[in-house]
């Protein structure tokens, strides 16, 4: 998908030497499986919250009309998909992780 990527890849590194990849843009994984997305990013607190949210949502909208259920799910997909990666970057920078590499070309970089 060269030239048609939906996200930019970056690398963050913590002071303790741990590193993690970050994707910008819309996240299909977060939109559909937010718990798996959070676990993959090692955001265990977010994963637990997402799990509780999923169970609570299931109980809450279980008796609602199907059309309303579908609306709620679509809203969730859009909201999670667009905000997940921003949340990830926010949490990383808040915890002191540093952006050390990116797909954006450096000034003056001629070729790979």
């Amino acid at each position: 998908m060269e030239g048609a990527e939906l996200s930019r890849l970056s690398l963050y590194v913590s002071k303790s030497g741990r590193s993690v990849l970050h994707y910008s843009g819309f996240s299909f994984l977060a939109a559909i499986f937010p718990v798996v997305w959070a676990l993959h990013r090692r955001l265990y607190g977010i994963a637990a919250l997402a799990l509780v949210y999923a169970i609570a949502l299931g109980v809450l909208i279980g008796g609602w009309p199907p059309a309303v259920q579908a609306l709620v799910i679509v809203a969730q997909v859009v909201l999670f998909g667009f905000t997940a990666n921003r949340l990830h970057a926010f949490l990383l920078e808040r915890r002191g992780w540093v952006l050390t590499a990116s797909e954006l070309p450096q000034a003056g970089e001629g070729e790979g």
Binding site: K15, G17, S19, L99, T100, A101, S102, E103, Q106, G112
Partner: peptide, 24 residues
Amino acid sequence: RARVKRLMGLNQVQPRPDRWWQTG
């Protein structure tokens, strides 16, 4: 394969902390 291609396209924007090299 897709991941390898994308990783090979990364440009360093800041040096890594020393600790990363030590764990490496």
